[in-house]
Structures are given as structure tokens and as C-alpha cells.
Amino acid sequence: MTSETSARTHPASAFLHRHVRVRLGLLLSAPLLWLGLVYIAALAALLITAFWTVDTFTGQVRIEWTLDNIVTVISGSLYQAVTLRTVGVAVVVTLIDIAVALPIAFFMAKVASKRWQRILVIAVLMPLWASYLVKAYAWRSVLSQDGIFAWLVEPFGGSTPGYGLHAAVITLAYLWLPYVILPIYAGLERVPDSLLEASGDLGANSWRTFRSVVLPLLWPAILAGSIFSFSLTLGDYITVNIVGGTSQLLGNLVYTNVGAANNLPLASAISLVPIAIIFVYLAAVRRTGALSNL
């Protein structure tokens, strides 16, 4: 009876109530139009450009179908070396971030008092608001020959790693760390304390409890965090420019080909490499439910 009165007063709402498809269509049309028209169309156009070529005289993109760019990227020793280096850096950065994030996230979620928990979340979030560029530049100054790192370790006979791949790994791991801590912390919050107590009651020590109870439940959250550190590293070129010395990652190659070399088709072909890697990674990670843990 009540729905009849509402149908009389709200004919539009009643119509929507009876037509699920229409409701869904209204909800989805705006966001799908936006993402489809703006993003997917742009991405598709870029990928198609990889099969075109550049006129050597005018520097303009010419629509002439060719596999040359793809072949160059797959078989060129420079591209192979840089791809391997980039993936290596992304894996190392991700592993460092997970190793650092686990203890601090565990302390925040399971050991700290409510009050400290709130303070620590703020402390982890705050560096995110300092500009990415300033943080990368700060590491440049920390790691420089007369920077604070050299000043701290020289009395003990150490020295700064200087600018290069090591500095790039340290800086990238630093930059993405909060993005990895937060999902892992949220994941730990969802692990009920009672499970940990039960495990302790059954005779497991802390390490055994962590390995057999916490870690299996935490996998999706860890993988969700790794998506950030992995994919952000895969496309970075600015940090590498600031602290990486002369080393190059895939992002740098794409950037040079778009800018200085003015060869968009080749740049598109190179960018197919990180796109492919990330799709494989997302597909592998999806089964664990990591994507809903972002």
C-alpha cells in the first residue's frame, strides 16, 4: 500500500524502481562516458600510433602502417637492457617497501594504543603532502658529497652511495612508502584480534602466529600496496633525473622520444612495455582480491 502512495506522488521514482536496467544506466552513463571517451579513446589512439611512423623530413607523424617501432623495441639491446633494469628496480623498491611497511603497520594496528594509533596514522600521512619533487630533491641533498648522509656515516668509515641506481632505488622506495603502509595497515585492522589470541592459546609463538595466521589473511592487502610501488616506479623518470645520475629507466626513454627526439610512434611502442607488464601484474594479482584492497 505504501509503495502505491509513493508511486502516485513520485512517478519517476516508481518507474526507476521497476526498471533496474534504467537505474543502472543512469548511474553508469556519466562515468563510463568520461572514462571511455577521455581515457580509453586516448589510450587506444596512443597504441595505434605505435604502428605508424615519423616523416624524417617534416618530423610529423605519418599514417603508414609498420611494425618497425615494435621490432626496434623488442629486439634493440638498449631497450632490452633498460626494460630489465626498470623491472629490477621496481621489484627491489617494492620488496623494500613491503619489508619496511610490515613492522610499522603491525605496530600501528595491533600494538599501539588508540591514541598512538591516531598519531602514527597522521605521521605516516603527512609526508604525502610534501611535494614529490621536494622530497626527491631532499634526497639529492641528503646523498650529496657534503650532505647529511656523508656527514653521519663518515666518522664510521662509510661513504654516500652518490647519485646513481642505488640512490634512485632509495628515493623511490621512500616516495612510495606511505602508499604501501596504508593498505597493509588497513588490512591488519581487519584481522580480528581473537584469531591471534586463539593462535597464541594453541601454543604458537609470535613469529609462528604471524606466518601462519596473519600473513595468509594479509596477502591481498600487501599485493594492493605493491601495485602502487611497482607501477609508480615503472613509469617514473623525474626521480631518476634528480638522483639517478646517468642511469635511465623506461620512463626516461619514453620522455626523450616524446620531447627531444619528437618521435611519438617510437615512444608509444616503448610505452607498450610497461603497459603489458602492468596488465600481467594486475591479472596475476586480481585473483587474490587485491584490487578491492587498494
Binding site: L232, L234, G235, Y237, V254, V258, L264, A267, S271
Partner: peptide
């Protein structure tokens, strides 16, 4: 996807 790909696309 990396920012540079979104950017050039």
C-alpha cells in the same frame, strides 16, 4: 598505468 603514459596519451 604510469603517469607518463596517461600524460602522452
Amino acid at each position: 598505468l604510469p603517469g607518463i603514459i596517461t600524460g602522452i596519451a
